[in-house]
């Protein structure tokens, strides 16, 4: 495991205009607020918004890349807030601390244009 207590993690990603279309196909979540600009505006959104679970996948990726692979991620919980927008950079940042039985606990969040769109993310990382 390459992630130790005291270490910080960071991942930056800018969702391109078609990421929600690709993610809808990949995940099976075709909610029109993510793929239909007109529909999104009709229901009062500024436009199509990111899938929360796509953003959570960026948080997960920040951990698996820092830890050296997907097998190290044992648990991840997040809270979604607000909405993720297309074309604006997302920064995932977190800090690792010692957990029980040799595990590492990472507290993180995902921020976009000054808004924390994922809060109170907690991950458990093992060897």
């Amino acid at each position: 495991m390459s992630l130790e207590a005291g270490q910080t993690i960071e991942l930056r990603v800018t969702p391109d205009p078609y990421v929600t279309v690709r993610y809808a196909g990949a995940s099976g979540d075709f909610n029109p607020i993510h793929v239909d600009e007109d529909f999104a505006k009709q229901v009062g959104l500024p436009g199509r918004i990111l899938h929360g679970l796509w953003t959570m996948a960026q948080v997960a990726r920040a951990h698996t890349e820092a830890a050296g692979g997907p097998e190290h991620l044992q648990r991840l919980s997040v809270q979604f807030r607000g909405m993720g927008r297309l074309g604006e950079e997302i920064v995932v940042s977190g800090t690792a601390e010692a957990g029980e039985d040799g595990t590492v606990i990472v507290h993180s969040e995902a921020e976009q244009s000054g808004q924390r769109i994922i809060r109170h993310a907690v991950a458990e990382i093992s060897d």
């Binding site: 044992q74 648990r75 991840l76 919980s77 997040v78 809270q79």
Partner: peptide, 8 residues
Amino acid sequence: HGGQEFRW
């Protein structure tokens, strides 16, 4: 969608 947790 308020929150999500996975345990692998």
